[in-house]
Amino acid sequence: MSITLFTTENLPEGCIVKETFGMIQVTGTVEVSNKGIIRGMLQRNKNEYQEVIDSFVDSAPAEANAILGVQIATSSQQFSNGTFLYVTYIGTPAIIEET
């Protein structure tokens, strides 16, 4: 089952909320600095940002078909091994239906 993410306050016309679940939150890191040649080649097919989104969606209950009120917060930090973007997703899983 796929999950639809809604960042808006209102659902599209013709949709209703049948059930909501407890809020979920996921924080992940994305390296935004130059990784160097060797690490770059080893990880060239890795999409860290998509992995954070997938982790967020996967944390919703299996019966949910939407996550409502999705909000995103970011922060960055520089360390000796690189610069990292911290991405936090927050939302409320729900079951929505078309009327």
Rank of each mutant, 00 (worst) to 15 (best):
M1S: 09
I3V: 15
I3M: 10
I3P: 00
T4L: 04
F6S: 04
F6C: 05
F6Q: 06
T7D: 13
T8H: 14
P12Q: 09
C15M: 12
K18I: 14
T20W: 02
F21E: 00
M23K: 13
Q25T: 15
Q25W: 03
T27N: 00
T29P: 02
T29L: 15
V32K: 00
V32S: 00
S33F: 07
N34V: 02
N34H: 05
K35G: 03
K35A: 04
G36L: 03
G36A: 07
I38M: 08
R39C: 01
M41V: 12
Q43N: 11
R44K: 13
N45I: 15
N45Y: 15
K46Y: 08
E48V: 01
V52I: 06
F56K: 02
F56R: 00
V57Q: 03
P61M: 08
E63M: 07
A64F: 10
A64C: 07
A64D: 07
L68A: 02
G69K: 06
G69N: 15
G69F: 15
Q71W: 09
Q71C: 04
Q71E: 14
I72M: 10
I72S: 00
A73L: 09
A73Y: 12
T74Y: 11
Q77N: 15
Q77I: 07
Q78Y: 10
Q78H: 14
F79Q: 07
F79E: 05
G82W: 04
G82N: 02
G82Q: 01
L85I: 06
Y86N: 14
V87M: 01
Y89A: 04
Y89C: 06
Y89H: 10
Y89I: 15
I90F: 12
G91P: 09
T92W: 06
P93I: 09
P93A: 05
A94N: 01
I95G: 03
I95Y: 07
I95S: 05
E97N: 11
E97M: 12
E98D: 04
E98L: 06
T99C: 10
